[in-house]
């Protein structure tokens, strides 16, 4: 037994000696790795003489994983937390605070929700209603218009219990209607065709013509123009007041690579990184970098926004979901 452990110690020190490169373990969702990650990782690795080890975690279980691993953290940095997840992340004290040197480059200061800088915004998007251009001739321009009988049984939404898109849509209506959101939802039920478990099944239904409208993202049309040179779906942001989904990154408490993690957080606000956001993430960069043409031509400009404060989410989320469930589940 002893011999074996001695052997391993020698082997280990040998390995470390030869490959002295530091490794930064980043937990994130798979499309981030495939897009931005693939594009900018080499830049960072060269700049800081290290390796990035991206670990793909389904966004549904990302925070749960951090909580369950808290005593033995595997990750150094986590990328892709949504604002609805932050209350839990802060409550569980999962992240280390760090103020990036370039924090002033973040254009929209309302994204900086944490005075301790535990969560740093790196991109944002907006929810929208996607509609089939063939079957919906005059898309709803307001949330009240969505209640019109002409849209009866045509909107697919996602379940806030199982889908972040669904949760964000619920928060959008709460942001707009305040305490009256339940009244609005009761009136909205005739418009809803079905509530899917996730964004993907809803997207399928609009793709194959089963549904006429769905809750999705503002950049969907631009995406179609970019990849297919045309689009059979249009997007509308009712009321013109977008619910903005900000994505955050943070340093995992207990990391052994704190300095490298700080470098990575700084790097996320750099021009290289931010320029890679639009065409990979189909989100908007948080700093002032030029947008690609397809965004200018086919994505709605987000001017007015609606939000729900993180404190409110923290205290009321489970109550809201329960109330939502009792409206939808009869």
């Amino acid at each position: 037994m002893r011999k074996i452990s001695v052997f391993f110690v020698i082997l280990f020190s040998f390995t470390v000696g030869v490959f002295a490169t530091k490794v930064l373990t980043v937990y994130t969702y798979s499309s981030f790795i495939a897009g931005v990650g693939k594009q900018v990782a080499p830049v960072f690795e060269k700049l800081y003489d290290c390796k990035i080890n991206f670990v793909s975690i389904d966004s549904g279980s990302l925070v749960a994983r951090l909580i369950l691993e808290r005593s033995h953290p595997e990750a150094d940095v986590v990328v892709g937390l949504s604002q609805s997840q932050l209350p839990q992340v802060f409550k569980e004290n999962l992240l280390e605070g760090y103020k990036p040197t370039d924090i002033a480059s973040v254009v929209n200061t309302s994204f900086l929700i944490d005075p301790q800088y535990r969560a740093i915004p790196f991109d944002y998007g907006a929810l929208a209603i996607d509609y089939n251009l063939k079957t919906v001739k005059n898309p709803p321009q307001t949330f009240e218009a969505l209640l019109d009988p002409q849209y009866a049984h045509s909107l697919v939404i996602e379940d806030p219990r199982t889908s972040t898109t669904g949760l964000d849509f619920l928060l959008w209506t709460i942001g707009l209607y305040g305490n009256n959101w339940q009244t609005y939802w009761r009136k909205l039920t005739p418009t809803i065709k079905t509530v899917t478990g996730g964004w993907d099944s809803a997207f399928q239904m609009i793709e194959d013509g089963e549904a006429r409208m769905m809750v999705s993202f503002a950049t969907d049309e631009a995406y179609n123009y970019y990849y297919y040179k045309g689009s059979d779906i249009g997007v509308t942001i009712p009321n013109g007041e977008a619910y903005v989904m900000v994505e955050y990154a943070g340093i995992v408490r207990g990391t052994k690579e704190y300095d490298l993690s700080k470098d990575f957080i700084n790097f996320m606000l750099s021009k290289d990184f931010q320029m890679a956001i639009p065409l990979n993430q189909w989100m908007y960069p948080v700093t002032d970098v030029p947008l690609p043409d397809v965004f200018i031509d086919h994505a709605p400009k987000i001017t007015k926004t609606v939000s729900v404060s993180i404190d409110q989410i923290s205290t009321s989320l489970s109550k809201w979901i329960a109330e939502w469930s009792s409206i939808i589940i009869k």
């Binding site: 379940d159 806030p160 219990r161 199982t162 478990g197």
Partner: peptide, 18 residues
């Protein structure tokens, strides 16, 4: 969702509400 099962609630507790 109007026909959801106990499993959906369990999934909600695990992932959304943690």
């Amino acid at each position: 969702a109007q026909f959801s099962t106990v499993e959906v609630q369990i999934y909600m507790y695990l992932t959304t509400l943690l």
